[in-house]
Design a protein around this nucleic acid. Structure first.
Lengths: 239, 239
DNA sequence: CGCATTTTTGATGTAGGTCAAGTGTGGTGG
DNA sequence: CCACCACACTTGACCTACATCAAAAATGCG
């Protein structure tokens, strides 16, 4: 976690600062700090006082919530350009989950106080934050409905499609999730076990829908996955 | 849905306007509209363009999300003093769920434009909204983990405790949920079926933990319910 | 090359969903 | 005021999707 001088240009891409003029952007740069985080490191831990708002510049961060009896759930993966830990700063003051770097990362952060000042001086920042958190709320509500009402296979399909959308890299003959993703991770995203995920992926692999590797998934036929996610009628696998 | 002149005092209790001075509060009052909504009426529907931010003054509103194939989930119940529909206005512009009055209600609302102006003029409003939405995000994430990792009985216990906290009325010998709540509703809050909820409540009733009625639940021994929710060791029911 | 970690796969168990009848109960209209 | 009806609730019997238990096999790293 080496602190560095922040790069002004980089803020331009953050939705949090959309609509700000150059002067205001310069102001945000001044109060920011950049850091490198190596793969495997923890950026913040569940229960810690939420003193920093983070944005990811490069890499990938896994947000994981742990229950009283140790069961874990992957809340979401953060990609470049996304904020994390910000809601906690302005709602409760305690991080409700761990943030782990699953690849080498470059991140930027603001102190709670500095971000508060920015928001008071530039309401657009607060409104952008509201937009971001609001969308995340809707996404989590949708996942909640899925976990409550859908079968495991559909949930895994939804999870992979979501990951492909936010972290998919086109490769020949498919879309590859561009960070290390184990069966256990997928299980923790969908409320099931790694065993069930493994069986499902094996089944899909036999149908040529996905291709799996160690901590690695490539979607070969996204359309077929959509059909599963939407529970559309689809051809039976060859007998 | 009769529009009325809003009552200035009533805004003082809303967390959204916490920390505003009298002049700013007067401004919020001017842009607000009050409405009566009778039990059973719909305040907004899933998919509608989100044009209004709502706050509930009196009554109870159920927020329900419907999936593609018709399965419903109760997202939350709104009580007096709470906002609803606000996140949708500033994140996506479409209501992601239905809002139904489950009792006769008095609600107040602002147009998206008016609320936008308020937030730009008074960053505190935007920051308060961020606080509210952030907390709701954390709550939904916690429910997501519960549904993903806990058994039905614990989830039902959690749901009842949550309801008791936000809508519980002390009565002799217990706490009563003060609005009509069917087994089906509880099932849709916890991702199970009304049958299973009925069996669980019957079991608890036999142990004197709760008392059920038609669309009605009273918690007789909240502590016992906490023990179930936390999965603490507890005495077996008499054989 | 050897070891730790991840993944696969089979066998078995069970929580809770589904199906199927009932049994209250409050509201309504005659 | 009563009879009826729709709707909420209960309860039993059965079934299955998925968890759990238990090994092995693959993979990549030091």
């Amino acid at each position: 976690m080496t602190p560095l001088a922040p790069d002004p240009d980089v803020l331009r891409g953050l939705r949090l600062f959309a609509g700000l003029d150059a002067a205001a952007l310069a102001e945000t740069v001044r109060s920011a700090q950049t850091q490198r985080v190596e793969k495997g490191a923890t950026i913040f831990s569940q229960g810690d006082p939420a003193t920093l708002c983070h944005a990811l510049i490069d890499g990938r961060v896994k947000i994981v919530q742990t229950g009283a009896d140790g069961q874990q759930m992957v809340v979401r993966y953060i990609g470049p350009g996304e904020m994390f830990g910000t809601a906690a700063v302005f709602a409760g003051g305690v991080y409700p989950a761990d943030a782990l770097a699953v690849a080498d990362c470059v991140a930027i952060h603001w102190s709670a106080a500095a971000m508060g000042v920015l928001m008071e001086r530039h309401p657009r920042v607060a409104m952008n934050a509201l937009d971001i958190v609001g969308r995340r709320l809707q996404e989590v509500q949708t996942r909640l409905r899925e976990v409550s009402t859908e079968r495991v296979e559909r949930r895994v399909a939804h999870a992979l499609l979501r990951l492909a959308r936010q972290a998919g890299r086109r490769v020949e003959g498919g879309v590859e999730i561009d960070f290390p993703l184990s069966r256990q991770d997928i299980a923790e995203m969908t409320g099931t076990t790694l065993h069930t995920v493994s069986r499902i992926l094996s089944g899909w692999e036999a149908q040529g829908i996905v291709e799996g590797g160690r901590q690695q998934v490539t979607i070969r036929r996204p359309h077929a996955l959509v059909a599963i996610a939407e529970d559309l009628p689809r051809p039976l696998p060859p007998a």
